[in-house]
């Protein structure tokens, strides 16, 4: 009989998968979200439209719907066939989180004084250079708190892929509960602590960045 204490390596393994999911989806969401934010504030109307549509479409759709699309519907269309589950989970959670990241960064872009972008244009920077060297670095600083909230929500959202056969923390917890129904409280506490630790790391990192960047603003 599996026990949450005697089989603690299973707990660690499950959380390791959760961490991988969170890191990879976070990376995808940050890159795609930054791109979407830049497109939305950019001069090209078509790209603004594409980005706005993506944000509206994905932000207003439940994560589970996105997961069903990536895991079930997309293979029917010939997409992601044979893609490893970890990658599918990453794609689903990353694509879902990107618009939230985009909007957090866009709020940061709006917080950067207009004069900063004007000064960059005045020394001959192109829009891309302006974004990369002047606007986005300052926008990131201003969007640390909302970005942290978004990444925290994303980390917890990785639990949704448990439904699709990834043995991450939530799936493992369900597995333990099914096999040891008398130990439910202990199992719950163990897994809750695991999630709390992960999420607190994000909060701490955000706090550290805010402190570090305070002087330079």
């Amino acid at each position: 009989m599996e026990n949450v204490f005697s089989d603690f390596d299973l707990v660690l393994k499950a959380f390791w998968l959760t961490i991988q999911l969170a890191l990879l989806s976070g990376l995808l969401a940050m890159v795609l979200g930054t791109l979407l934010a830049a497109m939305r504030v950019g001069p090209v109307a078509v790209l603004r439209g594409v980005a706005s549509t993506y944000v509206a479409l994905v932000r207003n759709t439940p994560l589970l719907v996105m997961c069903i699309f990536v895991f079930v519907a997309a293979p029917n269309l010939g997409l992601f066939v044979g893609t490893p589950f970890l990658l599918k989970g990453t794609i689903a959670v990353g694509l879902y989180t990107a618009p939230f990241v985009a909007e957090a960064i866009r709020s940061g872009v709006n917080a950067v004084p207009l004069g900063q972008a004007e000064a960059a244009r005045a020394i001959g920077m192109t829009f891309a250079q302006n974004m990369r060297h002047v606007v986005l670095p300052q926008a990131f600083r201003a969007s640390v708190p909302p970005l942290a909230s978004t990444l925290i929500a994303m980390t917890k959202n990785t639990s949704v892929v448990a439904v699709f056969g990834l043995m991450e923390a939530t799936a493992r917890m369900r597995d333990f509960v099914n096999k040891n129904s008398d130990d439910t409280i202990g199992i719950f506490i163990i897994f809750a602590i695991g999630y709390i630790l992960l999420v607190e790391l994000i909060s701490l990192a955000a706090y550290g960045l805010e402190r570090r960047w305070k002087a330079a603003r």
């Binding site: 000064a119 960059a120 244009r121 001959g124 300052q138």
Partner: peptide, 16 residues
Amino acid sequence: RADVGMVFQSFNLFAH
């Protein structure tokens, strides 16, 4: 614009 220097009322130095 690279050939035209501009100085603003509010300086607009890159804060970061």
